[in-house]
């Protein structure tokens, strides 16, 4: 699973390799600009190039191909229904017939377009942003102008996900010790409801202790973010190349569109 749940930072790999060496802010801006560009693309040449770029970024970030693609496939699982239905619901030139339903060419193309966009963006996100630890993400977002309250909430959440994950594990162990086995019964749902309720109660009690401890240490409502984010020459180079890459995607789009 993710490092979020294990409680330790740095999402694998050497700190100085590939995109991990770059300024997190540059990486976040790069992912967002990539996503906005890709969503606007419509030709398959450009979308294919975008997916190629995302796969390249995955290799550059030295993400293990198997688990990463599996994760992307999980996301595809969410949309597979919609993708499979589109060919039959978009009107257009009939392509084939299945169980009396006619699939249109336009529908198949539309489904393919969505799948390409979604996969390219998620892969790029995992490669550039998913490779920073969650606290760095918070700091970088703060430097990019996200409101303080939201950044603090993010940092608190990140800090306590692993703690609450452990709490959940203890409660599940206690349930197993009482021979609880989940099945399709009212008893199961009530037990899970109590579990979530208990988790919230324990979370609240923990947060009271946290607040007191923080106040003892002079907490005045502000988290002072200490970091050494620096925009170096390598980041400027990356930003420049990134701009050129996105421009190239746009060029493929226009050139391809003209050829159609």
């Amino acid at each position: 699973m993710s490092d979020l749940l294990n409680g330790h930072a740095a999402a694998g790999g050497a700190a100085g390799a590939g995109p991990r060496a770059l300024d997190p802010r540059a990486r976040i801006v790069a992912v967002v600009s990539f996503a906005v560009t890709v969503v606007a693309l419509t030709t398959f040449g450009a979308l294919g190039a975008a997916l190629g770029l995302a796969l390249g970024a995955m290799a550059w970030a030295r993400l293990p191909a198997g688990p990463t693609l599996k994760r992307v496939a999980v996301m595809d699982g969410f949309i597979v229904l919609m993708i499979l239905m589109l060919p039959f619901t978009v009107p257009g030139q009939p392509l084939f017939t299945l169980w009396g339903l006619t699939a249109s060419l336009d529908g198949v193309l539309r489904a393919l377009e969505i799948a390409l966009k979604a996969n390219a963006i998620v892969l790029m996100m995992l490669a550039l942003a998913g490779t920073m630890d969650a606290v760095t993400l918070g700091h970088a977002l703060s430097r990019l102008g996200l409101p303080d309250g939201l950044v603090h909430l993010l940092l608190f959440t990140v800090r306590y996900i692993a703690v609450l994950g452990d709490e959940y594990g203890r409660l599940r162990t206690a349930m197993r010790a009482r021979a609880f086995r989940p099945r399709n019964s009212h008893h199961t749902y009530r037990a899970f409801g109590y579990l979530v309720g208990m988790l919230l109660v324990r979370a609240l009690e923990r947060s009271e202790r946290i607040l007191e401890a923080m106040k003892c240490r002079g907490f005045d409502g502000r988290l002072h973010l200490l970091d050494a984010l620096r925009f170096r020459r390598a980041d400027a180079l990356f930003a420049g190349l990134w701009g050129l890459t996105l421009a190239a995607l746009a060029w493929i789009e226009v050139a391809h569109g003209a050829a159609f």
């Binding site: 603090h152 909430l153 959440t157 800090r159 703690v163 609450l164 979370a203 609240l204």
Partner: peptide, 28 residues
């Protein structure tokens, strides 16, 4: 965010983490 004052920030964060963990629970 307007409702998040200093005293309730830790509670909000820890509860937000709890709902994150709860969303990973699978029920039959």
């Amino acid at each position: 965010l307007r409702r998040l004052d200093m005293d309730r920030m830790p509670a909000a964060g820890v509860l937000s983490a709890t709902f994150f963990v709860a969303s990973l629970i699978h029920v039959p």
